[in-house]
Amino acid sequence: MLDQAILAYSPEEAVDEYLWNGLSRRTGTSIAAPQALRSALEGIRGSGCATEVGEAARAVSRVAAPVLALDRAVAGISVCGPCERVHVDDLEFRAKWSAAEISRRLRAASPGSRPHPRPLISAVPLSGHLPSAVVAQVAR
């Protein structure tokens, strides 16, 4: 799943090379056709993250989001766990927010960037019992 999140924001040549190596089916729901993968990558670009339930391993849910620099993936984050405890709908926002925050900090740290206010994350509980993030803006 992390590979798909990164591939969705990679140059077309990287996608072609990935497909050249072939796709293997891990479970009955795995993507095994090149056109199906290209379609999935388009969906990931539209939503900002990749999600799956049981694609790589039965009874495992995963959410992945790319860390971007200049609209290209330079890294990614992923959360996975047993389907009964990890619900992709609950984690999509948190994964996208975390990846976007890392992307923003990379931009802010790059040469020639202007200083921006930066959020300090005081809480990002995974339980869902509290708000997803408590953010305070502080100037650098």
Rank of each mutant, 00 (worst) to 15 (best):
P11G: 04
V63C: 04
D71K: 07
S30E: 00
C83R: 12
A99L: 02
E12Q: 08
A75C: 11
H116P: 03
E42Q: 13
S110T: 10
V134F: 14
A14V: 15
S10Q: 09
L70W: 03
I44S: 00
S39D: 14
V138M: 10
A100D: 14
A65E: 07
M1Y: 06
V60L: 13
P117I: 06
R114M: 11
S39W: 01
L70T: 08
L106Q: 01
V135L: 15
G112Y: 14
C49Q: 04
A57S: 09
R114N: 04
S122M: 09
L19K: 05
R62C: 15
A33D: 08
L120K: 04
A32F: 12
R94V: 15
A136M: 09
L41Q: 01
G48W: 06
H87S: 13
L23H: 00
R45K: 15
A40Q: 13
T51Q: 06
V79F: 12
G54S: 06
L37N: 06
D3C: 05
V63S: 02
R72W: 02
Y9Q: 00
V60A: 01
S10N: 03
A14P: 05
Y18M: 04
A40I: 07
I6R: 06
T27S: 03
A5F: 01
A5E: 01
L2C: 09
L37G: 04
L19Y: 07
R140Q: 10
R140I: 11
R105Q: 10
Y18S: 03
A36L: 11
I6Q: 09
R25L: 08
Y18W: 07
S98L: 14
P125H: 09
I77P: 03
V67I: 15
L23A: 02
A69W: 05
T27M: 00
S30C: 00
L126N: 04
S110G: 10
L19G: 08
Q35I: 14
R62F: 02
A8T: 03
L41Y: 03
A75P: 02
L91M: 14
V15L: 14
S10D: 06
T29C: 01
G128L: 10
M1N: 13
E52C: 14
V67E: 04
P115Y: 06
S30L: 00
C83Y: 09
A108N: 07
R26T: 02
Y9L: 00
H129I: 15
A36H: 12
I31K: 00
R107Y: 11
A33S: 04
G22D: 07
G54Y: 08
W97L: 15
V15D: 10
A5P: 01
V124Q: 05
V74L: 00
H116M: 13
Y9F: 15
R104M: 11
G76F: 00
P82S: 13
A40D: 12
H116Y: 03
I6T: 03
V135G: 00
S47Y: 04
G22Y: 03
Q35D: 13
G112C: 13
R26C: 10
L7T: 05
E84K: 12
P82C: 11
G48A: 09
A69H: 07
L68N: 01
D89V: 06
R62Y: 04
G43R: 14
G22T: 12
G22R: 08
E92G: 02
C80D: 11
L126T: 08
S113F: 09
R58G: 06
